[in-house]
């Protein structure tokens, strides 16, 4: 069953056409990884799903609701189905870990302090960070911040988890810890996961399906096995991380223009 659908979405930012008649469907329960070069619109894609950006044209459907046509109150209702991990965690730096993870519980529920603390402890345990409730974000390492961000994202048991470059800025071991968490949470919580990344090691470890974004369109989508030895020369260059090929030729031509 499709849970998120992009229908002919276009978005212009400044003078750059970030999304151009962009179509993509994401199935319930899968881990969909969107890859592409920096600045190609991967994060913009996530922001459209959350209703943080509105498309210039086209529609974004989330769980049978067209999020592009909803008012602010309804968008907030739909957002309760989501959890999002930001590239640099985006923890509230004036709050400790307990307040960060329990933010949505404090804001949107009438649970007692005891119940909220219990949920926060459970979520921190899920990301293997028990007992750090009183620490401030400034006291945490990059990897810990991401895991606290993940605990905050799952605090209200969302149906859909969005990850914006979850392994960026982490050492290889922490990258693997985050990848394992994405897989674990997907299995334990049964959520749909959408991951934006250009880390191919992550892609082959966590993805059920992969979509490659290039010049505002999805140029290839399919199971990760299709991306091991792709025929499309653009996809092949990206997946192999080669300095020479059609992707870099385009950049050189643009500079020469």
């Amino acid at each position: 069953m499709e849970i998120i659908t992009f229908k002919k979405v276009s978005k212009l930012l400044g003078k750059k056409q970030i999304l151009d008649d962009f179509d993509l469907s994401i199935q319930s329960g899968e881990i969909m990884v969107i890859i592409g070069r920096s600045g190609e619109g991967k994060s913009v894609t996530l922001k459209h799903i959350m209703g943080l950006m509105k498309p210039d044209s086209g529609e974004v459907w989330v769980d049978n609701e067209c999020i592009t046509q909803l008012n602010d109150d309804d968008i907030n209702r739909v957002r309760e189905k989501f959890g999002m991990l930001f590239q640099y965690a985006a923890l509230f730096d004036s709050m400790n870990v307990r307040e960060n993870v329990g933010f949505a519980l404090d804001e949107h529920t009438n649970l007692s302090e005891e119940e909220k603390s219990k949920i926060v402890a459970e979520k921190l345990e899920l990301v293997h960070l028990s007992g750090i409730e009183t620490m401030m974000p400034s006291e945490l390492s990059g990897g810990m911040k991401k895991r606290v961000g993940l605990a905050r994202a799952i605090a209200r048991n969302p149906q859909i988890l969005l990850y914006d470059e979850p392994t960026t800025g982490l050492d290889p071991i922490n990258c693997d810890v985050i990848n394992n968490l994405i897989l674990e949470l997907s299995k334990k919580l049964g959520v749909t996961s959408i991951v934006v990344t250009h880390d191919m090691q992550s892609v082959f470890k966590i993805a059920d399906r992969v979509a490659m974004l290039h010049k505002g369109k999805i140029i290839q989508v399919g199971p990760k096995s299709d991306f091991r030895d792709p025929e499309n020369p653009i996809v092949r260059q990206f997946v192999r991380g080669e300095a020479e090929g059609p992707l870099t030729d385009e950049i050189i031509q643009n500079v020469l223009k």
């Binding site: 730096d93 933010f103 949505a104």
Partner: peptide, 18 residues
């Protein structure tokens, strides 16, 4: 402003908080 450039404002929105 710092919250804005570090995506904390977007984080508030994703937590369904205006």
């Amino acid at each position: 402003g710092t919250m804005q450039v570090t995506e904390q404002i977007d984080a508030l929105k994703t937590l369904a908080t205006d």
